[in-house]
Amino acid sequence: MNPGPLLFLASFFMMSVSWLGFVLMPQLQIGRQGQVDVDGQLYPPMRPGMARQGEQVYRANGCFYCHTEQVRPKGYGSDVARGWGGRPGVVQSVAQDYLYDRPVMLGSQRIGPDLANIGDRQTNELLLLLHIYNPQLTMPKSVMPPYKFLFETRKLMPGEQLSTNALPVGDANPGEEVLPTDDARALAAYLVSLHSDSILFETPPPPAPATNAPGAATNAPASGAAAK
């Protein structure tokens, strides 16, 4: 007997099992999610165009190698204790939050803080731009490299005033100003757009005080809870 075809079928079978279980099953469960109505507003909202461009800057420069965009449930790790959470309940990031992310950049390492809710913590785009230009200006202990290539330095004409969007940086020569490029402004707009704080069915608000909900560490959405 020639064992070749048998071996082919065997590995095809194992491969299919893995694909069916780990790609098709999740796809059937969360692959067709749509926006949900939260108090008359659709969640998640489409990002504004500028933020969508900023998402591509975030992707192109690999920000997701150092920053995650996922908050673990309260009590699992210290994500919520560090103020990265956006929701009052136990469950934090859920699949619904990523509906319009192209691509989804969950990240796998936290060399910098989590950014899933940076738009809740920092709404001042100028400070974000300053941080991107030179992180040590806003956070002296930051280990993040500067992204000065997202900015341009322009010579001022004699007697010319600083532009309204010039960065207040100390290290610029007198007679010059530092301006954010479109990419930098788009990136800041994207960061401001990052917040996942709507209360959904799968992220219930905390119950009446002094009761700890059981199963605190799961974040199963509706159908997952039914299946489990």
Partner: peptide, 26 residues
């Protein structure tokens, strides 16, 4: 061969990921 093909192809999603809980559990 069989066990690695079966178990090796399912892992990789850490607990606490923003997905239905059965995925990281499995």
């Amino acid at each position: 061969f069989w066990t690695l093909a079966l178990f090796g192809s399912w892992g990789g999603i850490p607990m606490g990921a923003p997905l239905p809980a059965w995925i990281p559990a499995l």
